[in-house]
Design a protein around this nucleic acid. Structure first.
Lengths: 356, 356
DNA sequence: GTGAAAGCGCTAACAA
DNA sequence: TTGTTAGCGCTTTCAC
């Protein structure tokens, strides 16, 4: 039935340059040239080639192109969990900017698992990714710094680049680009605002004890207290993670434990949301009985009741900046360190201290 | 200074199999074999090779491996905007499951731009992606169906596969895998619940007029009315998008226009959040003056005040299922169509109709 | 303007 | 067990 002949004819798909060349009656190089665009080819041949391409529904294998030297550059980003609103916004910024700059984006969610992060980075080195962007904080231990520094070196040696987006530098000399926002400064301003309202016992619903972001915010909390001359009570520092459920759980525990406080600072807006519900469940009014503030200024924050006072962080811009900086200069770039500012957004969840 | 000799020695990076082979005193194939793992190599050589690999900090170029036949399989997913909570959860499911199955994930945010979606799919065909997953609804026009069907054919011919995740089928015979959740059914149940509370004029804050998800939900809204024998007032159908801001804006317009209603159904929880705030700003109590319900059951929904009655959708599972089904059977798979169920989650934002 | 040939970095079939 | 030889599918000199 002559089926054999049909193989490459119809919808095509698995066809190669050579198939196209044959069908157009030219050489493979010519096909490559008309597809490449940058090379003089007679109008007639071009037309024939293009027709063959269309008939075969041909697309050049990107991997082969890459090996041969052409090929779409790729960039990778790693985050703990794309599901968190602030992560999602950074991811959005990264992907959009990468696409704008003609790059493909590879993602990996690590769920906070360091091994996974490392494995993925190694894969990206194999992929010859132009840059690997680590999005969001991490547990800051000595081993972490050493490991990260090692991968930074590997990447740099391979002509790629490690970017820390929303994560602090590794120390001098590490070949990394870091784009951060000011966790400590934002928290400082926020807590100062709360303290200025007369609150003296403010609960801190923090993140994991080693987490860079969580710690930065906690440092700001502490510093604001000291600047005001009030000694923070260590019992008021609670640790969980950055989810809504963590905020809910922590707040319930604090209440159950009979902790005394007139205001609470949540490490993220998500945590604040959970805390707000727990407060509400306990019959406490916000901000009547207790004031509450978050961090991140996610879109949702203004829909909580009361609307949440929080710290605005330009997440999307952070992501965009990260790829722009990483891709801007080819490899030999100076080790950049950008610190983006944040500002507190006053809404309705913090009120003046009403006595106790 | 003998610097030339140092080039490939130190941190290495751009080294090739041949460099490693030379340093270990073996052939390239041997290096490939020890790295591949599946082939008998003497312990001694293996050690030497491994040492050379370490010293050179070598990783095989993944693109070259792919061309040669080995190589990490890749999968791609496309969505409108990773920033939307439900999208983010699907994306999370997709990425996690892909990684679990040993695949790399490429992402693209289209911002709803069809051209971008098409361009990206074409790139994925060039990348020889194992599957391309389209996440979330789309504007359902005849052109859309035709275009999508065409790319589905292209992909299929190339041994890849198109997956529609949260988007309806293209009609019979299209080589696609579709994993949907029941928009119409969920909305039907939700609206029936609201109607059962005695409400008769319920406002619908919908999405874009052609959008498959939005339309499915609207159909459910309409069907529930008819089933109850109440004729829905077309003036009560408003159109926007799925964001919080859209909900806020639409709700304000409805109020300004003096529309009469005692309940509102928002097409998504985000829309509901914005609507809630608009209602609040207008001095209306929920559910005292007007009842409100959302759709998606995002984590945040229970932190709104009142806690939002909504429809639960297993987004993460949807994403996981999408990749499992797509990857499960190699190409020649039957054209699958899975419809996941949803259920309404009754919380506090819908109350019985209190008269008018 | 076009083709032949060399090569990108890797793996696999074939010998030895 | 290991090396040699062919590719994989593409691009890019280098000739004509």
């Amino acid at each position: 039935m002559g089926v054999g002949l049909t193989r490459k004819s119809g919808a095509g798909g698995r066809s190669t340059v050579r198939d196209v060349a044959a069908r157009a009656g030219v050489s493979a190089s010519t096909v490559s040239r008309v597809l490449g665009g940058e090379y003089p080819v007679s109008a007639a041949t071009r037309t024939r080639v293009l027709r063959a391409v269309r008939e075969l529904d041909y697309v050049a294998d990107a991997r082969a192109r890459a090996v041969a030297g052409a090929g779409t550059p790729t960039l990778a980003f790693v985050l703990e969990d794309i599901t968190g609103p602030s992560f999602a916004h950074m991811a959005y910024g990264v992907e959009r900017e990468a696409a704008r700059l003609g790059h493909l984006s590879l993602v990996c969610s690590t769920d906070g698992d360091v091994r996974r992060e490392l494995e993925f980075i190694e894969m990206m080195r194999a992929q010859r990714a132009a840059a690997v962007i680590l999005v969001g904080g991490a547990a800051d231990t000595p081993e972490y710094r050493e490991r990260t520094r090692r991968v930074a070196d590997s990447l740099a040696a391979a002509g790629s680049r490690l970017v820390l987006c929303g994560r602090p530098p590794l120390g001098p000399g590490a070949p990394v680009t870091v784009i951060e926002y000011d966790n400590e400064g934002g928290a400082y301003a926020l807590v100062a605002h709360v303290l200025a309202q007369g609150h003296r016992r403010v609960l801190f619903l923090g993140g994991k004890p080693d987490h860079t972001t969580a710690m930065g915010r906690q440092r700001g909390y502490l510093a604001a207290h000291r600047a005001r001359g009030v000694e923070p009570d260590p019992a008021l520092l609670l640790h969980g993670d950055f989810t809504r459920d963590s905020g809910h759980r922590l707040m319930r525990q604090a209440l159950a434990r009979g902790l005394e406080f007139s205001a609470v600072i949540a490490a993220t807006d998500m945590v604040a949301a959970g805390a707000l519900t727990a407060l509400h469940e306990a019959g406490l009014a916000v901000p009547g009985d207790v004031s509450l503030a978050g961090y991140d200024d996610i879109p949702f924050a203004r829909d909580l009741r009361p609307a949440l006072t929080t710290v605005h962080v330009p997440y999307e811009e952070l992501g965009r900046l990260a790829v722009r900086t990483a891709l801007g200069h080819g490899g030999e770039s100076a080790d950049e360190h950008l610190l983006l500012g944040t500002h507190v957004v006053v809404r309705d969840s913090v009120a003046a201290y009403g006595g106790h």
